[in-house]
């Protein structure tokens, strides 16, 4: 038996369709998770102690349990509470909620990084709450939030591989299927590692570009 990646790459068409689904779920799940996480962090900041507690509990549960367990519960347990989802929507929902829990903590730290006086200055000038968030808090916290958010987004990409276990036909499931059809199990793992790594590098570069953009005003920071 010899190691021959060509066996796997011969099925390029299928790999591309798996890759497309991975990228799609990843980008949609990250974007939705980012949005939901921001909303959760904002509600926790402004919603009073009860709302804060009511949201802290699910966030802690989601952060304290494995993603694999969460998607199994959602996919196999969901039907028992009337939530029967196909694999792809179940995977997307799972990734979104899981990501949102982490993103919300990132935004919470971001909110806390902005000095209270900067918000008071906006209050005194007549800014409403949403205007303060939009024009003061978000841009000010961008630099603080960006590195951990990029990091989390990369982690989410890698977590999408677990969606193969609830039969989402994404990259991992596709390539492994090809591998077992053609008795090229190691080769399939090798190809998977290469493709995920390439995606992670691209995401990291985009993140660094964004950081460069937001750090332009920090040039002479003392």
């Amino acid at each position: 038996m010899k190691f021959d990646i060509g066996v796997i790459l011969a099925s390029g068409h299928e790999i591309l369709s798996g890759l497309a689904l991975t990228v799609l779920i990843w980008i949609a799940g990250s974007a939705l998770g980012l949005g939901l996480g921001f909303i959760v962090a904002t509600l926790r900041r402004y919603g009073g102690p009860l709302v804060n507690l009511g949201l802290a509990i699910p966030v802690e549960i989601l952060r304290g349990t494995p993603f694999l367990v969460q998607i199994f519960l959602l996919y196999f347990g969901g039907p028992f509470i009337g939530l029967s989802l196909d694999p792809i929507p179940a995977g997307l929902l799972g990734l979104t909620v899981y990501g949102a829990a982490y993103y919300s903590e990132i935004f919470r730290a971001g909110y806390q990084s902005v000095p209270e006086g900067h918000v008071e200055a906006a209050d005194c000038l007549g800014f409403g709450r949403i205007q303060t968030i939009r024009h003061v808090l978000l841009p000010e916290m961008a630099l603080i939030v960006l590195p951990p958010a990029v990091n989390m987004t990369v982690i989410l990409l890698k977590e999408t591989a677990l969606l193969s276990l609830i039969t989402v036909p994404e990259l991992t499931l596709t390539v492994q299927a090809i591998g077992s059809q053609k008795y090229a199990f190691l080769e399939s793992l090798f190809v998977l590692a290469l493709v995920y790594w390439a995606l992670v590098e691209i995401a990291g570069q985009l993140g660094r570009l964004a950081e460069g953009y937001f750090s332009r005003y920090r040039t002479a920071r003392t």
Binding site: P115, A121, C124, G126, E140, Y217, R221
Partner: peptide, 20 residues
């Protein structure tokens, strides 16, 4: 906000927004 619009406040720590 309407009543407060009469007032301008200057802080010890300036509180300028660093991104502007």
């Amino acid at each position: 906000r309407a009543v407060r619009a009469n007032i301008g406040m200057v802080f010890q720590q300036f509180n300028l927004w660093p991104h502007m």
